[in-house]
């Protein structure tokens, strides 16, 4: 494996770990605040935008697997939801001019809602009871809003790194 590839994978792993750790520690303890975030979701969505549907799918599957193992419940659901979200984000962003700030904002807004709908749908299929709809809508709305607000701040450095920085050597899908 080439040196720049190792560097890229190390960077991606660190980003991935930081996102998961923060989600399972800091953000899971920030109850009571309206704006909530889903940091791991940035990983498959941005992978989808920058590396295409396959990249998004792969990132989502890896992330989902990690999340599921950590949660120890509903194993497979996060793999499915993150994977699908990454894939769809990649499909939708195929013909989009990726330098605009609207791309991360809209994709995280839509991606968060899509992920939550997938998760809800999955929960229905496996027979978990329906949530309080109003609470669910408020929760999803504020999470989408929070993710959308944060998105440009993460996307810009990631995009530049992907274009000409540490993440630039090869795409996630190996193309």
């Amino acid at each position: 494996m080439k040196k720049h590839n190792i560097r890229r994978w190390v960077l991606l792993t660190v980003w991935f770990l930081i996102a998961v750790i923060l989600q399972h520690t800091l953000l899971s303890n920030s109850n009571g605040s309206f704006i909530s975030l889903n940091l791991p979701l940035f990983f498959p969505v941005f992978a989808g935008i920058l590396a295409g549907p396959t990249g998004g799918l792969m990132a989502g599957i890896i992330l989902g697997l990690f999340q599921d193992i950590l949660l120890g419940k509903y194993i497979g659901l996060n793999i499915l939801c993150f994977g699908l979200t990454g894939f769809v984000a990649g499909r939708l962003a195929l013909n989009v001019y990726k330098e605009t700030y609207l791309v991360p904002v809209l994709s995280m807004l839509a991606g968060t809602v899509f992920y939550q709908v997938c998760y809800l749908f999955g929960m229905f299929i496996i027979g978990v009871g329906a949530p309080n709809w109003w609470s669910w809508c408020v929760y999803v709305f504020f999470m989408a809003l929070g993710n959308a607000i944060l998105a440009p701040f993460i996307y810009v450095p990631v995009y530049h790194s992907f274009a000409s920085g540490w993440l630039s050597s090869t795409n996630l899908d190996g193309s």
Binding site: L17, I21, H24, T25, F66, I69, L70, G72, K73, Y74, I75, G76, L77, I79, L80, G122, I125, I126, G127, V128
Partner: peptide, 30 residues
Amino acid sequence: LLCLAFGTALERGGLTSIEKMFRDAFSPLQ
């Protein structure tokens, strides 16, 4: 995956060794 999720939705006897390993490795970071 949905079957797996359904299967793990109920209370299980215990964690698998892979899950234990993952959690043990992850706990210092947490």
